[in-house]
């Protein structure tokens, strides 16, 4: 067995990487029942310190995963470390384009495993999303934020748009000089936005604004 301190938060709570908030909560509740000081289940099983460590880790795991923002940051970290791949994180249904507009009717959050089933967090991401959409100037990192918020792996966009993933990365990281031409940039950007079923026109304009300036 992997020692607890080497396990990731999903392993610690014994849930899958695309667990819903409900699942996270109930996993935490079960874990507390098992490891809490007065629990008969683990009575005499651990030393005082071991138990304390386990409880601290569990709380850390729970607090990180229950919050959409900290969770997606944590997910990104796991993906970067190669612990998780984006596929397992989001499942197959993400290959299809995702209409952002539906978010307003909070459909996305129910059809999605990553964002929670709870209405509050749906509202929260909606709030962040509206702020993004209202920006006057849009940067690559805004696009990336939007994508992460919706829990879309870049691979899926690459597959849909048929644009190579490292080129898409250039857009998200504002390294336009590495793209073949301004024309390419615009066209890639258009496809990227199209994936989210948004009107590409205004987006492209707002993105290009900085470059032209």
């Amino acid at each position: 067995m992997k020692p607890l301190e080497k396990q990731n938060y999903y392993e610690i709570l014994e849930i899958s990487p695309n667990a819903t908030q409900f699942e996270i909560r109930s996993a935490y509740k079960t874990a507390l029942y098992i490891y809490d000081n007065g629990s008969p289940v683990s009575y005499s099983f651990f030393s005082k310190d071991e138990r304390k460590n386990i409880l601290v880790l569990l709380e850390e795991a729970f607090l990180t995963l229950i919050n959409d923002q900290t969770r997606s940051e944590y997910n990104r970290k796991l993906v970067e470390e190669g612990v998780l791949d984006e596929e397992t994180l989001y499942g197959d249904d993400y290959k299809k384009p995702i209409p952002i507009i539906d978010l307003k009717r909070s459909k996305v959050s129910t059809s999605r495993k990553t964002t929670s089933g709870s209405i509050e967090s749906g509202r929260e991401s909606h709030h962040i999303m509206s702020k993004l959409l209202a920006l006057d100037v849009i940067t690559g990192s805004d696009l990336r934020k939007m994508r992460m918020l919706l829990g879309v792996p870049l691979e899926h966009i690459a597959e849909y748009t048929k644009v190579r993933i490292n080129l898409l990365r250039c857009i998200e990281e504002d390294r336009f000089e590495e793209l073949p031409s301004m024309f390419h940039l615009k066209s890639f950007l258009r496809s990227y936005i199209d994936y989210f079923k948004l009107d590409p026109g205004p987006f492209v304009d707002r993105y290009m604004k900085r470059i032209i300036d």
Binding site: M1, Y33, I34, V41, S42, F45
Partner: peptide
């Protein structure tokens, strides 16, 4: 008594003692 107690005990034994 929690009817799941035994089930959870077995889980512990599996998880920590293999």
């Amino acid at each position: 008594d929690n009817p799941n107690l035994g089930f959870l005990m077995c889980k512990m034994v599996k998880k920590y003692l293999g």
